[in-house]
Design a binder for these strands. Structure first.
Length: 433
RNA sequence: GGGUAGGUGCCCGAGUGGUUAAAGGGGGCGGACUGUAAAUCCGCUACUUCGGUUACGUUGGUUCGAAUCCAACCCUGCCCA
């Protein structure tokens, strides 16, 4: 074997940065990288995504960006659309069974996933595999063979399962299958490295075992097998700064499909303590800059900086990378106008009303989508949340409103919900009954 | 199959006959403040034609009155087989 070259060690270090490689040690990865170049066979980098809910968020972006980094070095991205595994739902980090999905939902979500992933990775150069392709073929025998490779004790050793088990919360048997199936993915796509969040440790490591097990079944020499490496990346906390960003808590997520202003605003809402973490995992700023930011954040007054401005920088960077620089500028302007200067937004949904008619405000709030029910609308008014044209606060629950033709009024509920009311002349003749 | 403990609002969780639309916490929403949709503080958190109506696994029953008592059923944990 040729000696390990420093350039590949450096490459490996850069790739591992922020994450954890298993088995641990830079050299494992460096060796693979070098061999790949020497033999001119790109590494197969596996990432599995379950189309359980249609939107990818910035948590996924952390892993996808890493996948992109491998792509940029000429390696093969193997994207698994877990349309079979999605029928179970990953029990990782869960304390209860996931709600099942219909097959139709899974299909729609899968397509959306690919569209969104294409914002980060180069989809044309990636290999895309739906795991239903081989799981549907597997048959009972295949399933039994798969399940025979792992013992119940091994599965129960997994943290989530053992916790649920000891807390007497139900575990459905099919949930045990999830790690096995994910591991089998690795066998089928002959993965050299699997990417995952740090909660994927068990599943990804099982992939190694499974690759070995199946190699033995095929009668291959176990010593000649190189099971996949595992690169685990930290889980990004959501906008609350506490719980990891997860599809299970949509309000805590920043989605890749979020509009520029939405993405900007959500990034501005992360706690100050999260700034550095986002910069590390998402913006992937150079180490030096991160260090500098850490110092400044530790003593904002001393450095004469405002953490807010740092957040603005982060928010603009992210919006620019998912939308465009222009969109980022516009989002910043709109944000400042709306929240700093408390101006009305320039664009908002419209709701058309007939001029001269009298409308009860409570009804209007519901019709215009500003409140989910009339009771809620009343509460909003009582809480002082409802304003007209940004000025007049409505205090009366029984208030009514009417307008003259071509007049427009801005109805506002809270700081973020606006609707423009347009009054038009009644058209034609109203039929009289 | 036998025994036993449970099933409460978006989530967790108190409540064992009557001001209980149901304590407390989390989450969410709103307000004030600010440097932002940070932090902090405060309020709200079933629906309604404002008469009421619907809610504590389901369906019946007892009672002037039930989340609370009774019966059957469904679901979950644990022990035994």
């Amino acid at each position: 074997m040729s000696p390990l070259l420093p350039e590949f060690i450096q490459q490996a270090e850069a790739l591992i940065q922020g994450g954890e490689i298993l088995p641990s040690g830079v050299n494992h990865l460096a060796r693979r990288l070098q061999t790949a170049v020497e033999t001119n066979t790109p590494l197969r980098i596996k990432l599995g995504l379950d189309p359980t809910r249609p939107d990818l968020h910035l948590g996924h972006a952390v892993v996808l960006k890493k996948l992109r980094a491998f792509q940029d070095l000429g390696h093969k991205a193997v994207l698994i659309i877990g349309d079979a595994t999605a029928l179970i739902g990953d029990p990782s980090g869960r304390n209860n069974t996931r709600p099942p999905l219909t097959e139709a939902e899974v299909l729609v979500n899968a397509q959306t996933y690919l569209d969104q992933a294409s914002k980060i990775i180069n989809l044309e150069k990636a290999e895309i595999v739906r795991n239903s392709a081989f799981f549907n073929e597997m048959g009972l025998q295949g399933l039994l063979q798969l399940t025979a490779q792992v013992t119940v004790a091994q599965i129960l050793a997994r943290d989530d399962f053992s916790k649920r088990y000891s807390q007497n919360t139900p575990i459905a048997l099919h949930e045990f299958l999830y790690p096995l199936m994910q591991a089998y993915d690795s066998v089928m796509v002959r993965a050299d490295l699997e990417l995952g969040g740090s909660d994927q440790r068990f599943n990804n490591l099982l992939g190694r075992e499974m690759q070995l097990a199946y190699a033995k079944l095929r009668g291959e020499d176990p010593t000649s097998i190189n099971p996949q490496l595992v690169l685990l990346l930290p889980l990004l906390e959501g906008t609350d700064g506490k719980v990891k960003m997860s599809k299970s808590y949509p309000e805590n997520c920043i989605n890749l499909t979020d509009s520029p202003s939405e993405m900007f605003g959500k990034l501005m809402s992360i706690p100050d303590a999260m700034i550095l973490r986002y910069e590390t995992l998402l913006a992937q700023l150079p180490e030096q800059q991160l260090k500098q930011h850490a110092e400044m954040l530790a003593d904002p007054e001393g450095y004469g900086i405002n953490p807010r401005d740092m957040k603005v920088g982060l928010a603009k960077f992210m919006v620019a990378s998912f939308h465009s620089g222009e969109a980022a500028d516009l989002a910043e302007e709109a944000f400042n106008a709306l929240f700093r200067d408390k101006a009305l937004p320039t664009e908002m949904p419209e709701h058309t009303l007939t001029a001269g008619e009298s409308y009860v405000l409570v009804d209007l709030l519901v019709e215009a989508g500003l409140a989910p029910s009339k009771s809620e609308a009343r509460r909003l008014i009582q809480g002082g949340a409802v304003k007209l044209n940004g000025e007049t606060k409505v205090a009366d629950v029984l208030a009514t409103i009417s307008g003259i033709p071509t007049e427009s009024l801005v109805l506002q509920a809270g700081k973020r919900k606006f609707v423009r009311l347009l009054f038009v002349q009644r058209m034609g003749v109203t039929p009289i009954k």
